[in-house]
């Protein structure tokens, strides 16, 4: 069944059971997002960028975790929505090593897109929270432990899409979140045996990464 919802001043139709963020995106209404991917069973709701205000709710909510309801009235551009989005975005940037010129993601990078949309620059409001060595040398860290891929922890925004896509492609995920809190990284731990890997035939994680934090070794 199709439901009618009002996004800002635009009336859209959305299929029952769909999540609000997807419904907006399907109708050409952009809401910043990093950790959302179509058809994820349980939204991760971790990037905290997709906030909207829904009539009847006191505070902004992440739209990826809301199921559409008939007659729902949604605002995507209120001051409190923008404030949270900009704040989250600046926080992410404070952990992100900016090197656009040489970055493979340049021009297709989600961070660039979001910065433009939110009308903010790529310089964080917060002091950079990068490892000392990175700040001193101006060179970012690289995890080269994997036989095929390189991983750049100072680029990664921990959206988790690589893990998700690996799991949906192969039934199991050959990469994972490791450690905790601010130290969280993506890890390929134990995957040094090339014969077990799909190898460069499957580049799902490389392709889905919004910031090119995983790249093919042979290309870098």
């Amino acid at each position: 069944m199709m439901l009618n919802i009002l996004i800002d001043d635009k009336k859209i139709e959305a299929e029952e059971g769909k999540n609000l963020l997807q419904a907006c995106l399907d109708n050409g209404i952009y809401i910043p997002n990093l950790c959302h991917v179509k058809d994820m069973a349980h939204p991760q709701a971790s990037c905290r960028l997709c906030f909207v205000e829904i009539e009847g709710e006191k505070k902004p909510v992440p739209s990826c975790s809301v199921t559409v309801r008939e007659g729902m009235r949604v605002k995507t551009d209120t001051p409190s929505v923008r404030r949270l989005q900009r704040s989250a975005f600046h926080l992410l940037l404070s952990r992100h090593f900016i090197e656009c010129k040489v970055c493979p993601a340049n021009r297709k990078c989600e961070l660039q897109k979001i910065a433009k949309f939110l009308k903010v620059g790529l310089k964080s409001n917060y002091p950079l929270l990068l490892p000392k060595a990175v700040l001193e040398t101006g060179k970012q860290e690289t995890d080269e432990s994997h036989p095929i891929f390189n991983y750049y922890p100072n680029r990664c925004v921990l959206c988790g899409l690589c893990i998700h896509v690996c799991r949906t492609t192969h039934g199991i995920a050959l990469l994972t979140f490791a450690k905790r809190g601010i130290d969280t990284v993506i890890s390929f731990y134990g995957e040094e045996d090339v014969s077990r890997l799909p190898g460069d035939k499957c580049l799902a994680c490389v392709n889905i990464c919004p910031v090119s934090a995983i790249t093919l070794k042979s290309l870098s």
Binding site: R180, Y189, G190
Partner: peptide
């Protein structure tokens, strides 16, 4: 019968 990295990911948490 789970990937090694999965065990590592949980243990380091």
């Amino acid at each position: 019968e789970i990937p090694v990295c999965e065990v590592y990911g949980v243990a380091t948490f």
